[in-house]
Amino acid sequence: MGLRRAHRLLAAAALMLAAACSSGGGGGEGSARTPPPLPSGSQDASGGRGPARLGEPRQLVGGLRVPWAVAFLPGGDALVTERDTARLLRVTPQGRVSVIGRVPGVEPGGEGGLMGVAVSPSFARDRLVYLYFTAADDNRVVRFRLDGGGVRDVRPIVTGIPKGGNHNGGRIAFGPDRMLYVATGEVYRTRLAQDRDSLGGKILRVAPDGRPAPGNPSGTRLWTLGHRNVQGMAWDERGRMYATEFGQDRFDEINRIERGRNYGWPEVEGVGGRDGFTDPLLTWSTAEASPSGLAYADGSLWAAGLRGRRLWQVPLDADGDAGRPIAHLQGRYGRLRAVVRAPDGSLWVTTSNHDGRGDPGPDDDRILVIPVSRPAS
């Protein structure tokens, strides 16, 4: 039996048991009910060497307020967004922090505010930085030129993404194809996820100027649909795309994202095995994860858990299938929001304990730097 099929059979069994055991509503990042945990495949998905190992975290920066996203500039410095202050920060690998500026037009509230950040693949030439934020009437993607003059001359390139108190999505990233991918949420209006005329509950794929990217399945900005609230995207070394997704009462997900596919929400949560919908690569109970940021490094996906308060490692095999998830840092730093692979190969992980659902410590919120290594073959 193939590993992916084994995952689906296990998930289907867990889904049936959860349906028998759970009741009532819920949702959001911290209020889902918890079914029995889902077993996953083999411990070692890496062809015999074993999965990558984490070193000891060190605190790079403290005293931040909901650092939501991190993107690296070519020289090694990072741009960091703060969701609720609307500040865009520059952080060096030595931990020096400077404020580039407050982003005009941001209206924070609930789970909305200044969220995603991405650096142009041609930054050395065009100096362009991209941001996703909640404005007065919508969520939107904007870009501006980083030229030492702060955040100014901000130009919207994608507007009309639905906004709400919850489920605003917000992650943006350039893929290996140099197109910009935009993760949106259905803002608790579940029908939007299946509505092809809405930008909510989707992953969008756009050209650097915001127009629909060449090769999109419908000629629009839509790349995939049927998402509840995507807040993490990553690509492996073969260009395969993965995304994290918040579940409601039962299952959080990592999905393998492929052109034009429908990931089921709200018709399916977790694995449904239904024609027309794509099942997740793996699932967790919502208490174990509530996954936000996602990175790929050294043969594994790394997912930051908010409610789960841990960093999940998901080893991948040569076919892109998932091995058994491994939990790191469980309960040690509280809610984890962003995880990004740095140019030196380490992981940068941010905490999110000031987001209204955490218990902030004196150093929160923080940026942690964690070395990653692979066992010798």
Rank of each mutant, 00 (worst) to 15 (best):
R5D: 15
A6M: 13
L10I: 13
A11V: 08
A13R: 06
S22G: 10
G24D: 06
G26L: 07
T34G: 07
G41S: 13
S42H: 03
G47S: 08
G48R: 11
L60W: 00
L64T: 11
R65D: 15
V70C: 09
G75Q: 13
L79M: 06
A86F: 02
L88N: 02
R90W: 10
Q94T: 14
R96W: 12
V99M: 11
G101E: 05
V103D: 06
V106C: 05
G112K: 00
L114D: 02
M115I: 13
V119T: 05
S120T: 14
F123K: 07
A124P: 02
R127K: 15
L131N: 09
T134D: 04
T134V: 01
R145L: 10
G160D: 01
G160P: 04
G164E: 02
N166A: 11
I172M: 10
A173W: 02
M179D: 09
Y181C: 02
E186H: 12
V187I: 12
R189W: 00
R191A: 15
Q194V: 04
V206N: 01
A213C: 11
P217W: 10
P217T: 03
H227S: 07
R240C: 09
M241D: 03
A243D: 00
E245Q: 12
G247V: 10
D249E: 13
I257R: 08
I257A: 05
E258F: 14
D275H: 11
F277Y: 15
D279C: 06
L282H: 02
A289L: 14
G299R: 03
L301M: 13
L301W: 04
W302Y: 15
R309A: 06
V314A: 02
P315T: 08
L316S: 04
D321Q: 12
P325C: 08
I326N: 12
L329Q: 06
R332N: 01
R332I: 07
V340K: 07
R341V: 12
G345D: 10
N353A: 10
H354C: 12
D359T: 15
G361F: 13
D364A: 12
D365S: 11
L368E: 05
A376G: 11
